[in-house]
Design a protein around this nucleic acid. Sequence first.
DNA 1: CGCTAGTTGCAACAGAGTCTCAATTATGAT
DNA 2: ATCATAATTGAGACTCTGTTGCAACTAGCG
Lengths: 153, 153
Amino acid sequence: MQAIERFAQYLSKHGLKMTRERRALIDHVLSVRGHFDVDDLLGRLRKAGHGVSRATLYRNLPRLVDSGLIHKVEMARGQARYELMLGRHHHDHMICLGCGTILEFESPEVERIQEVVCRRKKFVMTGHSHQIRGYCESCASVGSSPGSAGRRR
Amino acid sequence: MQAIERFAQYLSKHGLKMTRERRALIDHVLSVRGHFDVDDLLGRLRKAGHGVSRATLYRNLPRLVDSGLIHKVEMARGQARYELMLGRHHHDHMICLGCGTILEFESPEVERIQEVVCRRKKFVMTGHSHQIRGYCESCASVGSSPGSAGRRR
DNA sequence: CGCTAGTTGCAACAGAGTCTCAATTATGAT
DNA sequence: ATCATAATTGAGACTCTGTTGCAACTAGCG
Ligand SMILES: [Mn+2]
Ligand SMILES: [Mn+2]
Ligand SMILES: [Zn+2]
Ligand SMILES: [Zn+2]
């Protein structure tokens, strides 16, 4: 539960309050594994009897991101997903166009090259977003025209 | 004007027709330099007296992408931009959060690493999207809290 | 306990893109 | 040149994400 502590600290440090809703939010975020989107989360909260509004979610997720507890993953077409970052470190994603599966990858080398590129262009990097699109092993093997496997995304 | 030829070929190869609207579209796309979004393009077309509807633009830009004439650049928050790829090769982008400037970078090394990562995960890559966010030289120098330069994006 | 700034829910709104449908048109065949 | 037909178009309704204004609430401090 030190994550909750951490968020509490973040809040007070910014003059924000630990409300019932934020508590519910963080509770649920901590219990999700994998990548989730706002509606996933809303569903979970509703199901658990916590009436948190969509607006409140949208207002607070950036806070969780800012506090470092979760990361935002920008998918194509403006879809956003989030994931818990407790103890994990930065990585990027491969997204299957067939079934929506998300694989993760990590490359210190790419990260380093980004730094170099930025230095060269005198650009101050604050973040980046790097996704590989394509087909996962099972979707690729089904047939090169991504036909049948899994739910489409 | 061989670009138009190329697109014509693409069309007939796919059982599609070379309409007045598509001709206007491609004409204007060829004349833009830099990165443009759908409304830019719509504006240009309107100003030139070509009444091409938004729907038609949205329906045809993917065709131009598919034919290889232009590339789509997915910005954050669902904003899409396009750019002519005539004779250029693939590159990725750095986007200034202060003024919206887009810088380009190119890294064969990153491209190679992507291949390796995909091979390792047996993922068949069809594309990728890689943006670095931050502040360009002039925005960064204005002050670390990105205050004053240029139009915000 | 009581104040006050921060928070919430709701519903209206905004931006980007998709879809339906009737009317139009490009193109291959006669 | 004329026809038949499938593709295309414009308009507007619609969807999906996310944002915002506002009145009612509430956490947190004294
Ligand atoms: Mn991840
Ligand atoms: Mn570019
Ligand atoms: Zn898959
Ligand atoms: Zn800038």
